[in-house]
Amino acid sequence: MTNIWHNAGARGKLLCLLLLAVLVATPLAADRYLLSVLILVFYFAYLGQAWNLLMGFAGQLSLGHALYLGLGAYTATALWTLFGIGPWLGVFIAIPVAAAAGMFVGWLGWRFAIEGVYFALLTIAFAEFTRIGFDHLQVTGASAGLFLSVNSPGSDKWWNLGGGPLLYYYLALILAAGATFLVAYLRQSPLGYRWLAVREDPEAARAVGIDIFRARMIAMLFSASMTAVGGVFYGFYYRNLFPSQVFDIGRSIELILAPIIGGLGTIFGPVVGALILTPLGESLTALMEALGINAPGVKLIFYGLMLMVIISLRPDGVWPWLARRLGLSGARK
């Protein structure tokens, strides 16, 4: 643990602490709107870390992470609405549910040597399969959606995640910072090295004694579990769930943007990507509103263009370049 800190370099340490201090203090000065944007930044940074663990470190492209997000969200939300089990407990049921789904997808794919594009398609297929399933699952409201009532007893208490933006702000901040720390720790662990080896060359990784199936499965376990926690957050923050939204492939794509733009396989890539992308997207929405144009797709067009430009010009992402500029280490893959 002390290792990460030790290797960060003086400038890196200073910048990290400064950023954290600013973010902790922000609610003192910020209005509701700014807080809501920052909540989104943290949320995408967090999910970005989860996805980046699988893709950026272990080299496995998943385009179906909405599956774990949705399972996490639905599990915790349904436990609350149906049985009155609160989210702090529900999350511990949501994690194994999503993790089991992830392990199943991984097992099916990697056991049978389904890799690359084929694996990505398998992940989409499972997410879509589940979406249609939930569309017809009556107990969670089917396609009509699942809603968190604000009037049920105890729903306004913080231990049931019934709080104002401040609660969600700090919760999201802790999630994002915690995930970044976890990823930094894993990157320096033997496990992290194994993931990099598997990403770089599976055959050579085998030749130095790495069980690549196992390494990938562990990456999936972490990634799906973390994404499920993000799903619980999603469910209680938005307080309504529709299969066509939460399991949608658009969700899966949305959550891979930050790490790709920030820098695949880097520790701060997802954070930087979310910091760039979310405010840009939000200001675009605000601008359209100010101009009185009602065009819901514009933000997505912008995201799509952003993806194309970044992957064409700077496939390594923004962070490695930025880190060099700032004179920081830790930019390399």
Binding site: Y193, L196, E200, D201, E203, A205, A207, V208, K333
Partner: peptide, 15 residues
């Protein structure tokens, strides 16, 4: 078959 994007040291550390 080196691990191309990793440093020489990291290549050997993995071994």
């Amino acid at each position: 078959k080196p691990f191309p994007a990793l440093t020489v040291e990291d290549n050997v550390v993995i071994g």
